[in-house]
Design a protein around this nucleic acid. Structure first.
Lengths: 351, 351
DNA sequence: CTGAAAGCGCTTACAG
DNA sequence: CTGAAAGCGCTTACAG
């Protein structure tokens, strides 16, 4: 449609050009692009036609300045190269692009109050909506710092009470998933299940694991602290490998499980014969690990789409709610009965 | 500094507030924040002091509308969840944030001319600068579609002539790295090296591999086509495993190498005893693969910082140049002599 | 239902 | 060196 603009005119078509083409004032054009109700149907149609024909697209900066709706979101997040955040961002971007929103990204590395405040101020003053990834300290603080009135949605840890309670929250129920994974291991006959934690302020995967053990009358062993990355999983694996009574581990994410698998391998502990391992995420590599990793699939891209959907829904209906995708346990090769029972392949069926 | 704004005033401090505080016109304030030369030193100092004290921050939308400098970049990219693009984006964001730029992301999935055009138009009309990740068809087309006058920088495949020639390009020399990796394998005594390709329009890793073989008087075998993901590496591995004459493979990236390692494992081909494998990237997981993966480390985050740096440099000096980080071969466990020579551990030293 | 006015916060010439 | 004017493209009340 570019050919319809007079060639050589350097400036893009504006609301005035459209108005002129139709023979109305430019305010009327503004009304139709903003869906204002009081516009005669015939003039609305004429304006719409002119918009299409001239290829008009509203100037976002002008809109923002004049106080109109902004069609932009900025994502406040931690390290975007980690699997979860990366997929989440991808989901947000997809949904935002489909809705013709511009998406900006601002990484918050530090949880220092001043840094968080600076990040939030910076974002808020530019006028758009915000999605915060509140999986770490910096994120939860940022979420708390978003002023009232700013359209916001957040990806959060599973709330302890399992409810959003009117707040713009969306999550994947990893607490329930951790319970399922832990139960899966217990059902194989393991006497206990160890846990390698993620550095979340409130690790709900750990909670699900702990609750399941407790419910089975087992005192949860001390969790091994991890930090998301394979190396921390390797270190955890070294510790666990030394403990001959340890026969099953749940890892807070797959990246750590990879490192753990390697540590076990180095220590001569075979998986699953000598140790069963379950991860969290189901990364593209997990299926090809040696052995293939049993893990909890979490659809972070879908979560991202839900975040954006919630944000938009809330702009119309402040009570809108969205639920995140359900996690699912993917059975692969890294789990089996504990060593003592292995010969008979006993599978515990009693509760 | 928030306490210094009169509480209850909903609107952020503007250029006028600063002017009023200092006792000058707001145009003068504009001049100092834009570094205009003709401002008396004493008034400049006074204005700067007032800006700091009031916590003034220029409104980006207003600036953009008025035609000022925009301090925003949008990144035009393919799938941001792949390792390279994700790290690149991270590097760009880091550098941009440090320079107080807003960074937006727009994913281009389709290389269809209309889709590319739409993406570029959308970005350009919002006024800021653009960084394009031109590693695929969509990206290269987008780069070509950026109008003159728009500040731009691009992450590109290694140019065939090895030179940027005044263009705003930055890259990692993966062609040279592929040559080094291939030579490494040949030096172990392998009679040839196979290659699993990446789906780039021009795969410069493949070129480096091919050239090295040719230089050694070896006719390059047909490359096995890959698609970035572990699964395609697995499929490639299945094919290669059947070929008993194949003893060494260079993979276009680590993700495919993971899949390939698994395929080899499933086929009973041990690594490196029966087959040597080299990857590309050095992902965090690569070190923990079984066996640990020999690979070419590529610092994409540094490349991203270079991209942004080049963009800024060019805004002042259109002839500015930046060179990307040098790739480096990381030696680990997945390489060794071919089976026939293994017993004697011969290492070919002649050229 | 639709125009004319005022203003969003800033920058860029234009005068002094 | 610094003010006053005009304008960026749009939206929101205010009149009709």
């Amino acid at each position: 449609m570019d050919m319809l603009r007079s060639a050589g005119d350097p400036r893009p078509v504006s609301i005035r050009d459209v108005a002129m083409a139709v023979g109305v004032s430019y305010q009327t054009v503004s009304r139709v692009i903003n869906g204002h109700p009081s516009v005669k149907e015939s003039t609305r149609a004429a304006v719409l036609a002119a918009i299409a024909q001239l290829g008009f697209r509203p100037n976002r900066a002008a809109r923002a300045l004049a106080g109109g709706l902004v069609q932009s979101v900025t994502v406040l997040t931690g390290d975007t190269t980690l699997y979860g955040p990366a997929q989440l961002l991808r989901g947000i971007e997809e949904a935002a692009r489909a809705a013709d929103f511009v998406v900006s990204v601002r990484v918050i590395n530090s949880a220092a109050p001043l840094d968080v405040r600076a990040a939030v101020d910076n974002v808020v003053e530019s006028g758009g909506a915000v999605i915060v990834v509140a999986w770490d300290h910096a994120g939860t603080r940022a979420l708390a710092a978003v002023p009232r009135g700013v359209p916001v949605a957040a990806a959060v840890e599973t709330p302890l009470d399992g409810r959003a309670e009117g707040r713009p929250w969306v999550w994947i129920d990893d607490r329930a998933a951790a319970a399922v994974a832990t139960r899966h291991l217990l059902d194989f006959g393991h006497r206990t299940v160890h846990y390698v934690s993620i550095p979340s302020p409130v690790d709900t995967r750990m909670i699900g694991w702990r609750e399941t053990l407790l419910a089975a009358g087992i005192t949860p062993p001390e969790p091994v602290r991890g930090r998301w990355d394979p190396r921390s999983g390797y270190e955890a694996g070294q510790r666990l490998a030394r403990d001959r009574s340890a026969t099953a581990v749940l890892c807070g994410n797959d990246d750590m499980a990879f490192g753990l698998l390697r540590a076990l391998h180095d220590a001569g502990r075979t998986v699953p014969d000598s140790m069963s391992v379950v991860g969290f995420d189901d990364m593209p590599q997990s299926e090809f690990a040696i052995p293939a990793l049993t893990t909890v699939r979490q659809d972070f891209a879908a979560l991202g789409r839900a975040c954006f959907g919630l944000l938009r829904d809330r702009m119309d209906d402040p009570a809108a709610v969205r639920v995140g995708p359900a996690p699912v346990l993917i059975h692969r090769e890294s789990c089996g009965p504990p060593p003592a029972r292995r010969t008979t392949r006993t599978r515990r069926t009693t509760e």
